[in-house]
Write a protein that binds this DNA or RNA. Structure first.
Lengths: 131, 131
DNA sequence: ATAATATACAACCAAATGGTTGTATATGAA
DNA sequence: TTCATATACAACCATTTGGTTGTATATTAT
């Protein structure tokens, strides 16, 4: 329901996991369709072990899950965590928009001496995103 | 307009920059109101140089900008890039939702032998997010 | 001119990251 | 049992990262 049950280090892990093109591609792939680790590995110009590590990073971040199926490990995408991050960024956006409104209202932006909250359009504060 | 004018390494930089709690906090702060580097540094339990480095990482990722104002460097948040990332994650979400629809349609998910696109609800494909 | 403030930047260090190769284990097929 | 496949995992290496301290430069105040 609420987004902010994530600890800092959990969020660190999520963003960190997405900070690599190979891993983003893996997420994209397994969101489209599940794939075994070796199937994934075929696609990239690096060792199997390297891909294995990437998957491990994604798994540790909770972005994908693995499940045994015969002698393969099937990797699948985890929407929930992706949704979490997206909401977090929505929060950033909301903050910015809120501020843009304030600037339009007050019509000055002196950096250090910026106006305190003083919501002219009161109650519009977009603090924390819920679902 | 279109989101995908970002190179892989640019996206790497953005996610990488957000993969640190201090830096996320800085972004949050400067989205609320601009602040000089030293003003930011006061808030964190680390050296000025460390905070300076964090700001540099954010700047390199395009998430914040700096502008001289007297003897201070004023840091401010950059919405555009944040919007970019958010859209990128929206794309991931869209892919997932699309797939969820397919699963609901086809009612099987054999991992390797998954059904090819075959959009029963044709034209609903949520490929690339535009603005 | 001198001092204080705000920043820049270099050098250094420990730990994490992204890659490699090599070896071991588990499962399925013959 | 034996062989091939899929994965796990350890050891190693170069580079990056997040922090430190120290020094230099630019701007404002006295």
């Amino acid at each position: 329901m609420v987004v902010y049950e994530l600890t800092d280090s959990e969020v660190d892990a999520m963003f960190g996991a997405l900070a690599d093109a190979t891993r983003r591609d893996i997420v994209d792939r397994v969101l489209h369709e599940n794939a075994s680790v070796s199937r994934l590995a075929e696609r990239y110009d690096m060792s199997f072990a390297a891909v294995q590590k990437h998957v491990a990073v994604l798994q540790a971040a909770g972005l994908v899950t693995k499940s045994r199926q015969g002698r393969e490990q099937i990797v699948s995408g985890n929407l929930v965590s992706i949704h979490h991050i997206q909401k977090l960024l929505s929060h950033f956006e909301a903050v910015w928009k809120q501020r843009a409104l304030q600037m339009a209202d007050v019509l000055r932006d002196d950096a250090t001496t910026e106006a305190p909250p003083s919501p002219t359009s009161s109650g519009t504060r977009a603090d924390i995103p819920h679902d």
